[in-house]
Design a protein around this nucleic acid. Structure first.
Length: 576
RNA sequence: GGGCGAUUAGCUCAGCUGGAUAGAGCGUUAGCCUCCGGAGCUAAAGGCCGCGCGUUCGAAUCGCGCAUCGCCCA
């Protein structure tokens, strides 16, 4: 697997290394520091490096030169790089940038590789690293809402990307099925069984879903089941209610296309004694102390604001204790990296979890907590209004009733996790160019249609000769496609699936421009048609693969029916 | 009061480990079907990158301070 950019990086590093040894520098330059990148301005070539400027100071004392050390070093590097058959041209510009134009041989080779490897293009070799991505993990005390949708889309995409690059990835949902909240759910259901219409008192869950659970349980059990004393009934009823809740959540996630390898039960940590063992181990290691009858963990030792309670004065174990045990379990299962995907309202969790992981003897780099900012749902720019009862969120289900999973996922993933997301339902539903997902998907559909149309010609033309692609736009597009492996790596390195979404949008733009400017199928030139179709085909393969990493489909055709267009050339005047 | 995140075009947002003239979509304006799907393309207008100081050859990007907004905690 050769990546164009890495090949260039290596060539530059070799040139710098050889210059260093010629000058008798004992300290080899730190070759990780310079960058090779694609300049925004096409005038600056296909790739560009700042290596000369980065190393100018290091090299200057040993060099003889007039004027700027950066320029002097650039010209040394240039003379070494010009010999390489990678490049068509090597130029020095500005304060010491070295700009490269890649030879046709290189990018046609990349295209050929895309065509032969298909959706394997850019895939990494197995790393041996085991990664656990834990996401959603919403308490089974209320339905998933739009915020959870963001976590679901993000976690799933991150898992796909890491796995594509060779990590062994598991997706896990941590089910908080122990403790007071579940008991509260049970109480809320009990209340609804008795008083379907009344206003639920504070402390109980008030959403309409509680009533649904109540009637479901009523249908399931005879009256005698409910007539037992509360001490006996409540635990059982609570558990069943939580299970019902959870199966509803699973159904929502399933509809969204998000699947988990494991549903990890918090309760199992209690029943196996894992929580108590974790607390004992922390105590044995000297990380706890007693105060006011409670047992505290010294998280301030690791920079947390205050120490955290593990065991309450009444003897109850806290959620923090089971969370600690859960993470100990993750590492005990052999995961090298645990990624926790949480909403921004869990911000306080970060410092204490990092602290306890370190106290248990694990390197803090093995836990990566990603906080995504909250989601604001709007409708055509206006705040979304549903039932405005306090504390009630818009359920994910309601969004999926209106918006396709593809559109919803793309919407969630176009933005960085640490910026607040405005999710416009009307925009996500739109079958117009407003909707970013269609811009990318349309590329796939468009190419499929072109290839279909060109099929007879292609048969006559035989294998494509990529050397016939001589247009600047064709070269730009090909080099962009060759950058796909790099784009995936960047998304993985930064744990930032939205970088893939940006890359896809950018690539779709390049293709649509190319398509608008070029006749792809020409009857009297089958050879050129074949070459262009090969480029288009490579484009579709790579974009489909990138969409796949976000969990979005790459349709062969778009459904045109529900979006009647006004007649061309006449203003759309049908009004509201 | 403390912690985390944000602040970039009228709106919603990208800008990856500091790089050359800061980008995209929407919206606005003006165009493009003898043409492979117009869900597309072309062009124009639109920016003290919140403010200040610092680091350096070079800052939207890094550091510090301030302001404002969101979330969490007391």
């Amino acid at each position: 697997m050769k990546i164009l950019k890495e090949t260039i990086q290596k060539a530059v590093a070799e040139a710098a290394g050889s210059a260093a040894s010629e000058l008798g520098l004992e300290t080899a330059p730190d070759l990780a520091k310079f960058v090779v990148e694609r300049p925004a301005n096409p005038e600056f070539g296909h790739f560009s490096t700042n290596a000369a400027m980065v190393y100018a100071k290091l090299f200057a004392p040993k060099m003889e030169f007039k004027g700027s050390p950066a320029l002097a070093l650039a010209s040394v590097l240039k003379s070494k790089l010009e010999g390489s058959d990678l490049f068509e041209s090597v130029e020095i510009k500005g304060p010491g940038f070295i700009n490269f134009r890649v030879g046709a041989k290189e990018w046609t080779r990349a295209l050929a590789r895309i065509l032969s490897e298909g959706d394997g293009y850019g895939r990494g070799v197995p790393t041996g690293r085991r990664v656990l991505v834990e996401f959603v993990s919403s308490n089974p005390t209320g339905p998933l809402h739009v915020g959870h949708g963001r976590g679901a889309a993000w976690g799933d995409a991150a898992a796909r990307i890491l796995s594509f690059l060779g990590d062994e990835v598991s997706r896990e949902y941590y089910v908080n099925d122990a403790g007071n909240q579940i008991r509260n759910l049970g109480k809320s259901v009990l209340f609804r069984l008795e008083r379907p219409d009344g206003e639920a008192p504070d402390g109980l869950y008030k959403g309409a879903y509680v009533l649904d659970i109540a009637s479901e349980l009523k249908a399931r059990h005879p009256a005698a089941w409910f007539a037992r004393p509360e001490a006996e009934l409540l635990p059982e009823l609570s558990r069943e209610a939580a299970e019902l809740m959870l199966s509803g959540m699973k159904a929502d996630l399933d509809r969204f296309g998000v699947r988990f390898d494991a549903w990890f039960s918090e309760r199992s940590l209690f029943s196996s004694g894992a929580v108590e063992r974790t607390v004992a181990a922390l105590t044995a290691a000297g990380w706890t102390y007693e105060s006011d009858g409670a047992l505290f963990f010294r998280s301030t030792e690791f920079g947390d604001d205050k120490d955290r309670v593990l065991v309450k004065s009444g003897g109850d174990l806290t959620y923090f204790a089971s969370d600690a045990a859960y993470h100990a379990d993750k590492f005990a299962r052999g995961f090298d990296l645990a990624v926790d995907v949480l909403g921004a309202d869990h911000g306080g969790y970060l410092a204490r979890m990092s602290a306890v992981v370190q106290a248990m003897g694990f390197d803090k780099s093995r836990l990566k907590i990603v906080l995504y900012q909250l989601v604001r749902l709007t409708r055509a720019g206006e705040a979304y209004r549903m039932s405005t009862r306090a504390g009630e969120f818009v359920p994910l289900k309601a969004v999926l009733d209106e918006v396709s999973p593809d559109a919803a996922r793309f919407m969630y993933l176009t933005q960085s996790h640490d910026s607040a997301l405005e999710f416009d339902v009307d925009l996500a539903k739109a079958r117009t160019s407003d909707n970013p997902v269609f811009y990318v998907q349309y590329l796939c559909a468009r190419i499929c249609q072109v290839l279909k149309k060109a099929a007879p010609l292609l048969e006559a033309a035989g294998p494509p000769d990529l050397g016939l692609l001589k247009e600047p736009r064709e070269r730009e597009l090909a080099i962009q496609l060759a950058g796909f492996p790099d784009a995936v790596r960047s998304a993985a390195r930064n744990l930032a699936p939205h970088l893939m979404a940006s890359w896809l949008t950018e690539t779709a733009g390049l293709f649509h421009q190319y398509y608008g400017a070029t006749r792809m199928v020409t009857e009297d030139d089958p050879a050129l048609t074949a070459a262009r179709c090969a480029l288009a085909s490579a484009c579709r393969l790579v974009v489909a693969s990138g969409l796949g990493l976000l969990g979005v489909s790459a349709p062969e055709r778009m459904d045109l029916n529900p979006a009647p267009q006004p007649p061309r050339g006449t203003p759309g005047d049908e009004g509201e």
